[in-house]
Computed example of a mutant assay.
Amino acid sequence: MKRSPIPAAVPVVTASLLTLAPAAQVAAPQAPSPSTTSRGRPRQHNEAMLMPVRTGTSLPDLDTYFAAVDAGRYPADSPFSGGPTGVVPLSPGRSVVLTTELPAGKYALVTWVRHLGSGKMYAARGMRALTTVGG
């Protein structure tokens, strides 16, 4: 079966479990993690979710929010203005290409997954980024 080409106007996000960064669109910092082996390969599942954020949202805003969530609190002043678009947690060493239409705007690239050993959220440890889609 031949696949049709992806229209140029449709954002294409490639999410890798090794970096959580969409290729060529945003470079998310890698959090130091005991969940990786000495070869840098993950030993647990992870995900990548794009979530629209409110106007003016900064990385420190995301850090404050995820620190609270990591501690079991869900602040009423969420930085998000809508639900997630992304991929569910994948097994170690797997990757996925997500093709979706997204409204133009600012998004956070996040993971809601917790480290299996420590129970800490990866997003609270710095595995998050902001990016702009379109316009």
Results as ranks from 00 to 15, higher is better:
residue 107 Y to F: 07
residue 65 Y to T: 02
residue 94 R to W: 06
residue 2 K to P: 12
residue 44 Q to H: 02
residue 109 L to S: 06
residue 78 S to K: 12
residue 45 H to P: 03
residue 43 R to F: 01
residue 12 V to G: 01
residue 55 T to K: 15
residue 135 G to R: 02
residue 114 R to E: 12
residue 12 V to T: 08
residue 36 T to D: 05
residue 29 P to M: 12
residue 9 A to K: 09
residue 117 G to M: 02
residue 86 G to T: 03
residue 75 P to G: 13
residue 33 S to T: 14
residue 56 G to T: 15
residue 114 R to Q: 10
residue 131 T to Y: 07
residue 81 S to K: 07
residue 74 Y to P: 00
residue 66 F to I: 04
residue 48 A to K: 07
residue 50 L to M: 15
residue 112 W to Y: 12
residue 81 S to T: 14
residue 69 V to Y: 04
residue 121 M to N: 00
residue 45 H to F: 04
residue 82 G to Q: 09
residue 42 P to N: 11
residue 87 V to L: 05
residue 19 T to N: 04
residue 73 R to P: 01
residue 135 G to D: 13
residue 52 P to M: 06
residue 11 P to N: 04
residue 60 P to W: 04
residue 19 T to K: 05
residue 72 G to D: 08
residue 41 R to A: 07
residue 12 V to L: 10
residue 98 L to P: 02
residue 26 V to T: 09
residue 32 P to Q: 04
residue 7 P to E: 14
residue 34 P to W: 02
residue 78 S to C: 00
residue 68 A to T: 05
residue 111 T to V: 10
residue 118 S to H: 13
residue 101 E to H: 08
residue 21 A to N: 04
residue 26 V to N: 09
residue 57 T to V: 14
residue 9 A to Y: 11
residue 59 L to D: 14
residue 103 P to K: 08
residue 28 A to E: 07
residue 108 A to M: 04
residue 88 V to D: 15
residue 126 G to F: 01
residue 108 A to V: 00
residue 33 S to F: 01
residue 23 A to P: 01
residue 135 G to V: 05
residue 16 S to I: 06
residue 132 T to F: 04
residue 118 S to A: 10
residue 90 L to S: 02
residue 11 P to D: 11
residue 107 Y to L: 10
residue 34 P to E: 14
residue 6 I to H: 08
residue 2 K to V: 13
residue 133 V to W: 11
residue 35 S to F: 03
residue 92 P to R: 06
residue 36 T to V: 11
residue 3 R to A: 08
residue 11 P to W: 00
residue 24 A to P: 00
residue 75 P to W: 06
residue 86 G to A: 04
residue 93 G to C: 03
residue 102 L to Q: 08
residue 3 R to T: 01
residue 104 A to V: 03
residue 125 R to M: 07
residue 93 G to N: 03
residue 42 P to L: 07
residue 134 G to T: 01
residue 122 Y to S: 03
residue 91 S to L: 14
residue 113 V to Q: 15
residue 118 S to G: 10
residue 81 S to G: 10
residue 132 T to S: 13
residue 103 P to D: 11
residue 109 L to P: 01
residue 125 R to D: 05
residue 91 S to I: 03
residue 16 S to D: 15
residue 126 G to K: 11
residue 9 A to P: 00
residue 39 R to D: 12
residue 68 A to S: 07
residue 82 G to R: 00
residue 38 S to I: 04
residue 78 S to A: 12
residue 6 I to P: 07
residue 11 P to Y: 06
residue 118 S to W: 13
residue 31 A to I: 00
residue 71 A to S: 15
residue 69 V to G: 10
residue 42 P to V: 04
residue 56 G to N: 14
residue 48 A to S: 13
residue 21 A to Q: 06
residue 63 D to H: 04
residue 134 G to D: 06
residue 116 L to W: 13
residue 89 P to D: 05
residue 1 M to G: 15
residue 29 P to D: 12
residue 96 V to M: 10
residue 27 A to C: 09
residue 46 N to T: 03
residue 64 T to W: 05
residue 57 T to K: 12
residue 84 P to K: 07
residue 59 L to S: 11
residue 126 G to I: 01
residue 83 G to S: 12
residue 117 G to D: 15
residue 77 D to G: 06
